[in-house]
């Protein structure tokens, strides 16, 4: 069984982003970029499934500008067998719906048995691509996974839901989106980084797929959230209780 893992190049999670003062967006020039952390977890899980013999091949897929090759090389260094970049124009806004259509096209071509993806990308925070992909493929979905067990053409998935966990079973092929607690992704070792340079990375222009990937949303403006002003420091617990009672009136 082939596992397809979509990976996105995003601003590194440790970077404090800067909103351009003219409202035109978030500053991306000269900012450290990395693989979306949730996608790393999805990739780690796919590699572990292959190591356990539950999968034959792990294919990493990215959709974006040429720079996303770097993210795919990271995926190959972690342990993906090969990579595909669907190249889009620099700066083009490829929304989750368009991304889902492109992933669906590759999933069909490759006859993937499982798509493992991050539950959301930490740039746009949409939490949508996996669900949209499942809809387009008409496959079952298991989102926000914290445990995955493959057994006889099906997956049993423990999901993070409000108030606890839910366990569901889905028949394969399926789309599974992963949450934080599923695993801790490995670091790529230096020998594996070297080996990754020789693994196949196919580049295909997005236009080749003949799909409607035009954005449906127009970004009107991007602004900083209203700043919250700090309050006062109190000197003791007694003073804190007094403030809460008398000043704030919350007790």
């Amino acid at each position: 069984m082939k596992i397809l893992v979509p990976v996105k190049r995003v601003v590194d999670y440790n970077v404090k982003i800067r909103v351009r003062p003219d409202g035109s967006g978030v500053e991306l020039a000269n900012v450290k970029m990395s693989m979306n952390p949730f996608d790393e977890i999805a990739l780690e899980e796919a590699i572990r499934l292959k190591e356990k013999g539950a999968a034959s091949e792990v294919i990493a897929l990215s959709i974006g500008a040429a720079a996303s090759q770097e993210t795919l090389r990271t995926a190959l260094a972690m342990g993906a067998d090969r990579a595909i970049l669907i190249e889009t124009a620099p700066g083009a806004d490829i929304e989750p719906l368009a991304v889902a259509k492109l992933i669906a096209a590759v999933a069909r071509e490759e006859e993937a048995g499982l798509v493992l993806c991050g539950k959301q990308a930490i740039d746009n925070d949409m939490n949508a691509t996996g669900q949209m992909l499942a809809a387009i493929l008409d496959w079952p979905q298991a989102t926000f996974a914290s445990e995955i067990r493959l057994e006889g053409g099906a997956a049993q998935v423990t999901r993070e839901v409000d108030g606890g966990l839910q366990v569901i079973g889905v028949a394969l092929p399926a789309v599974i989106s992963v949450d934080l607690r599923l695993n801790e992704p490995r670091y790529a070792s230096l020998p594996n980084i070297m080996k990754a340079k020789k693994k196949p990375l196919a580049i295909r222009p997005a236009g080749e797929f003949g799909l409607d990937i035009a954005p449906r949303l127009t970004v009107v403006t991007t602004v900083e959230p209203p700043a919250r002003k700090g309050g006062v420091k109190v000197g003791s617990v007694a003073e804190l209780v007094a403030k809460l009672k008398d000043e704030a009136g919350v007790l």
Partner: peptide, 22 residues
């Protein structure tokens, strides 16, 4: 909610429209 974040993007995918999350 976790429940509708699971369901509504799938609805949007079915309808070929974008989702507006959160």
């Amino acid at each position: 909610t976790a429940g509708l974040k699971n369901i509504l993007p799938r609805v949007a995918g079915r309808l070929d429209v974008m989702i507006l999350s959160d």
